[in-house]
Design a protein around this nucleic acid. Structure first.
Lengths: 296, 296
DNA sequence: AATGTTCCATGAATGTTATTCACGGGTTAT
DNA sequence: ATAACCCGTGAATAACATTCATGGAACATT
């Protein structure tokens, strides 16, 4: 009924004082405006302005329309600007899903510079998914998945963004602290502390204990990295974490990293994304930035 | 660019989940919507939704449009409702101009019931006009003029709304308080207190003193009725006011009304309005109500 | 698998609407 | 008075929106 064009006419008429002048600004003829308003008046059932000699005076209905125009038109224009930015890939929101607990520390280091580089992109981090990280990616709950195990499926791509070594963490005074590496059997009397994740998704089980048909004495789960390492420092157990993470904590608490097996346990973190999104600049840019972050 | 119709489509699609269902609600065909959105997408330079198997998923641009739709459409609808009421004369604002100081007391008695009767009409009272009450009426600064002297001109109508008697007010202990009426000469040693208005617009001068070639000893002006009557009660002067007003104050302070001349001074209050506005219900209703208010 | 249903996209045909053009009447300024 | 300006109106036309008819893709059912 009331269309955006009507509001445009009202605003222009108010600004310029006459139909003719308003028409010029709108790149239309005076006649077009006259027709448009006439029709609107018929629909509304009331005149919106009255001629007072040569000039127009808004009626109360007209005043209402004017208020509406001044309130809504800027919103239309703002939205168009926003969408134009979205279209150009300059603005958007990037929802990052995490399937790897300690990676959160790593992500924080990436997000900082990224927000600088893309001031109009909002970054949102999600950590729990009803149907797993892949489900979240397919269901468009997230746009990017940080995971140590890429589950290749049509429609999604994975790119490795960084390599690291998974190590055993022990308290500084632990007997194993001085070993060059540990074998599974050496941990059979230890308490293993992990994040609360199914064992089949923990490399320490799938790639270390199981192949050797060994197992730790006890298995505890803890949600946060800080508490976990405090437990380890207190000699209450051992854990498996990325070396770079342990190195950071080792500066402030008595923990030590020990190689898992003689050759160590190399791991990779991947970023997964929907194939379709491969052209979104602010998304690929995130991956590029992620790869460039170096760890000493 | 983004039209109201686009927002309608978005809202309907969100509510019903499919183009077909949305089209039905909007009394259009599915094809119409498809075309409309296609064109919008071309203009915006970005798709607004994507097909995901059988159903649609909004893109980020689409989400923006959805937010816009949910914010703006209710405003359009509200404005249309408002204007419909204005058109029917059920809603509006009534700006009342006062050219008669003591009438303010009277107006208050009318406005109360009126606001009850017309809950959607705002009443605004103005008391000062750059070009007089008539000028304000013509200039659309006010819609209704309360005045004791109707100045008939083409385009405006006046209707008497109430008759009263203008009387002299004196303190209860004043020598004149016991008189049945006073003549101009009896006031030649008195101080006359009036509102701050040009003498030629005061009936006490034009209809009482001037015809008798008499005048009061002094003339003071006071803005408010309360202070004026306190001065009179204190014997510091006399004044001319409507009888109904004096009667009200006489209950709480020692003042008395005395007839001006043997026959008294009858007056009328008129309501003036633009001829054009004669059909506005809430305006004529005000006058009708004003006439019906009785004074004991 | 084959079939039917549902939903959307597309292009041509058809209405419908918006806009312009041409004109006339009214108002203001010179 | 006269000219300049502004608005309203109606007919002609250009632009647009909508429908119709059709086809393809994704599900659901058999």
């Amino acid at each position: 009924m009331i269309e955006r064009s009507h509001l445009e006419i009202f605003r222009a008429v108010e600004r310029h004082g006459s139909l003719t002048a308003a028409a010029e600004q709108l790149h239309l003829t005076q006649s077009a405006l006259s027709h448009a308003i006439r029709k609107l008046e018929q629909q509304l059932g009331t005149p919106v302005w009255e001629r007072e000699g040569r000039q127009l005076r808004f009626t109360q209905a007209g005043e209402q329309l004017l208020i509406l125009a001044n309130r809504l038109l800027p919103q239309f224009e703002h939205a168009e600007m926003l969408i134009a930015q979205v279209a150009k890939g300059l603005r958007g929101s990037l929802r990052v899903g995490m399937e790897c607990h300690p990676c959160y520390q790593w992500l924080l280091k990436v997000v900082g510079p990224y927000l600088q580089q893309w001031p109009d992109v909002d970054v949102d981090v999600k950590q729990e998914f009803q149907f797993g990280g892949m489900g979240a990616l397919f269901g468009h709950d997230i746009d990017l998945l940080v995971t140590p195990d890429p589950l290749h499926r049509p429609g999604v791509c994975f790119e490795p963004v960084f390599d690291y070594e998974q190590v055993l963490v022990v308290g500084s005074h632990h007997p194993l602290a001085t070993e060059a590496w540990v074998e599974p059997e050496q941990l059979e009397k230890e308490t293993l502390i992990t994040y609360p994740v199914a064992p089949e998704r923990l490399d320490i089980f799938t790639r270390f204990f199981l192949p050797a048909h060994a197992a730790p004495a006890r298995h505890k789960t803890i949600e946060t990295t800080d508490i976990m390492l405090q437990m380890v420092a207190a000699g209450r157990g051992v854990s498996a974490l990325p070396r770079w993470l342990v190195d950071e904590y080792a500066q402030k608490m008595p923990v030590k990293a020990v190689k898992l097996g003689k050759t160590g346990m190399p791991k990779q973190i991947f970023l997964g994304f929907r194939e379709r999104d491969a052209e979104i600049d602010y998304l690929t840019s995130f991956m590029k930035l992620a790869r460039s972050i170096r760890w000493n």
